[in-house]
């Protein structure tokens, strides 16, 4: 139905994958609505359009339930970025990514980028327990993550809690270490045959986030959006060049080669 395509055409597609209950919908909700909500299980997949500068980014939030696996490859088709989400307090959720979800990404773009995201960091990590609600904080988040400058975050927090425990009451045992995620990222690159190439470094692509407090959530999405920009631009350029020109180029090249072998 080409005549009906009045909708803003999405430039790129980002897909959230991961086992049920790791917090995919909550992450997206935190990013788009700036708040945390205990959501009910997603049915199938939910499609969102996000304006990022002049670009339209489409985001598929998918259900983690095995029941919906049949549609996984449809959600991933042509994706430019896939966010593989696990729960830092649940080792199995990382294992599931490798066992069940990685193969769904086979339909994604060749140059698709992958982010590994350990959500629910607030349950294991005091620095992730602080509120990151205000927009101003999001600017500092990448820095916070790297330098762990706690006073900086505290200053942005209107009423800093006396102790981290006062927020959630207890610190859970962290089952998935950052290194496990980094190792998994390495295996993804190998699986995709992207090793050694100019692929993105794991320290840039492995995140720990908290949808509950907002910790690292903006950093995750904004890093990804920035990274998919080249793919948007490449796609736009491809579209601008008319197919006839492409053919001419091919024929010209082929012709030359033919001639050269002839001589």
């Amino acid at each position: 139905m080409p005549e009906g395509s009045k909708m803003k055409k999405p430039d790129v597609k980002v897909v959230l994958l991961g086992d049920m209950n790791v917090g995919k919908t909550s992450l997206l909700h935190r990013y788009t609505e700036r708040k945390f909500k205990d959501t009910v299980s997603t049915v199938g997949g939910a499609f969102f359009l996000k304006q990022w500068g002049p670009y339209n980014i489409s985001i598929w939030d998918t259900a983690g339930r095995e029941q919906f696996h049949g549609l996984g490859s449809m959600y991933c088709r042509g994706a430019s970025a896939v966010i593989l989400t696990y729960d830092v307090t649940n080792w199995q959720s990382l294992a599931e990514l490798e066992e069940r979800f990685l193969s769904l990404t086979d339909t994604a773009n060749q140059d698709c980028i992958y982010a590994i995201v350990g959500n629910k960091a607030d349950l294991t990590d005091p620095k992730a327990q602080l509120s990151h609600d205000s927009i101003g904080v999001s600017e500092d988040q990448t820095q916070c993550e790297e330098e762990m400058t706690e006073p900086q975050i505290l200053s942005a927090c209107p009423t800093p809690p006396a102790s981290p425990e006062s927020l959630s009451g207890l610190i859970l045992h962290k089952q998935v270490a950052h290194e496990d995620a980094v190792a998994f990222y390495g295996r993804i690159l190998r699986y995709k045959g992207l090793e050694d190439k100019s692929s993105l470094p794991p320290e840039k692509m492995c995140f720990e986030t908290s949808a509950k407090t907002g910790y690292n959530v903006d950093a995750l999405f904004e890093t990804l959006f920035d990274l998919v920009l080249p793919s948007i631009l490449r796609k736009r350029n491809e579209n601008q060049e008319s197919p006839t020109v492409d053919l001419e180029v091919c024929r010209g090249a082929g012709g030359r080669r033919a001639r050269s072998t002839c001589c």
Partner: peptide, 17 residues
Amino acid sequence: NLIGASSAFQAGEIWTP
């Protein structure tokens, strides 16, 4: 009933078997 149960995130468009 499915509509009622899937209304958690109402800005999006759902696609489900």
